[in-house]
Design a protein around this nucleic acid. Structure first.
Length: 114
RNA sequence: UGAGUAAGACAGACGAUCACGGCUCAAUUUGAGGUGAGGAAAGUCCGAGCACCACAGGGCAGGGUGCCGGGUAACACCCGGUGAAGGCGACUUCAAGGAAAGUGCAACAGAGAGAUACCGCCCGGUUUCGGGUAAGGAUGGAAAGGCGAGGUAAGAGCUCACCAACGGCAUGGCGACUUGUCCGUUCUGUAAACCCCACUCGGUGCAAGAUUGAAAUGAGAGCAUUCAAUAGUGGCCCGCUACGCUCUUUAUAAUCGCUUGAACGAUCCGGCAACGGCUCGUCUAGAUAGAUGAUCGUCCUUUGACAGAACUCGGCUUACGGCUUGCUCACCGU
RNA sequence: GUGGAUAUAGUUCAGUUGGCUAGAAUGCCAGAUUGUGGCUCUGGAGGUCGUGGGUUCAAGUCCCACUAUCCACC
């Protein structure tokens, strides 16, 4: 996943949470808001409730790996945050990808191929 | 065989495909090569390096350490001893200086908590009392060193034997201390109560700090052209330094610092050991929302414990998986 | 990264310089009052003083280590 897509600054996270809308599934909550750029910018939020540093890092890695194949199909002009819930560590890897896709479709951020 | 005790090393291994952070080379957005977490990276409890502020200065206040000798850059750490405590033992643990420098405290109980006489005992007197005494009783965590004999009106280290503690002297040891002498003395506990003594500690932390930029030549406030005020500067005072400076608010990017180091490995030498020395060899993460995942195959013993570097080292503490070896005790067999 | 605070009854808090049986309010339970409920009155129960060690005759209090929660600064 290219680094330029990632959402970094604390200000950007704050803006997205304040102005954005959200959808949720058992593994994640999706928060998204319109941005000034044309490209899509994605952040991952893993709170201390998930576990210690090892488990938080692992959660971020799994989420990043699951999302990478579908990045080109996400429509631009949005900031997107995935908030992890505790089950992310135990769930099978395919479920992560499936739930991400349904969340993005529900938010209307997926471009149809064809 | 079981229980215990001390020490040590390890932290799943190998391979395939697609991904991730540095680095090198090609090349110009891709490819190739090689590399990439720990014994605790953790807690942040100590000690240092490094950077800035005086070259880190003086005094008061405050903190830390506290048997002895050694190791170390330094330490509250480590090693070897001494003493005390625990354990049948191997062995382990100890904030282990000073209570005859001073002050405070010792609830309740008890007559009395470094000061006494309630019940007693003895002598005189004979309702009441005066004097002597501390053996016995009772209280308490602790009651004028313990126990026996002599002694006495009754008693008492008043005297003596044995023991204990403290001081002196001698002996061995660098020293803590040990052993002896019987010369002198009989002084409660508490210093993780204040305190005294010895040694020691300046402050802030890599968001330190340095360099190059950008942006308003922004806004508000303070002091003032000199003794000063303000800032560096931290709990206070002194001293030193700077001078159109300081504070608040708004806005704020990149590079360096950033990994070769009190480093690691091996032979030999010195030392009981911690550790030190000579020579040779090795290069071993450096990110900046922050790098190890997914899908399999084979093997051991299952889904493989605890857990992820953020300037760097030395310790301590806490979390945790199985394994090996020495030693001790108990039981059984020969 | 650095510094600080708190933990006591179900809940919110006291507990002074170590000392007698750890208190208060509220909530809970029982009884009285009422035709019934509330209010009110009376009585009662309820505590591993965050955890583990140590000092002391004696620890909620003093010391050390750990755990959890919260706050501040850059």
């Amino acid at each position: 996943m290219d680094r330029s897509y990632s959402l970094k600054r604390h200000k950007e996270f704050r803006y997205t949470y304040a102005r954005g809308r959200s959808h949720s599934m058992p593994l994640f909550t999706l928060v998204y808001a319109k941005s000034r750029n044309d490209s899509v910018r994605i952040g991952f939020s893993v709170s201390k409730r998930i576990g210690n540093a090892v488990q938080r890092n692992r959660a971020k890695r799994r989420m990043r790996a699951a999302l990478t194949p579908m990045v080109p199909r996400i429509s631009g002009g949005f900031n997107v945050i995935f908030v992890a819930k505790p089950d992310v560590l135990e769930a099978p890897f395919e479920d992560l990808g499936k739930q991400m896709e349904t969340l993005l479709r529900r938010a209307g951020l997926m471009r149809d191929e064809a």
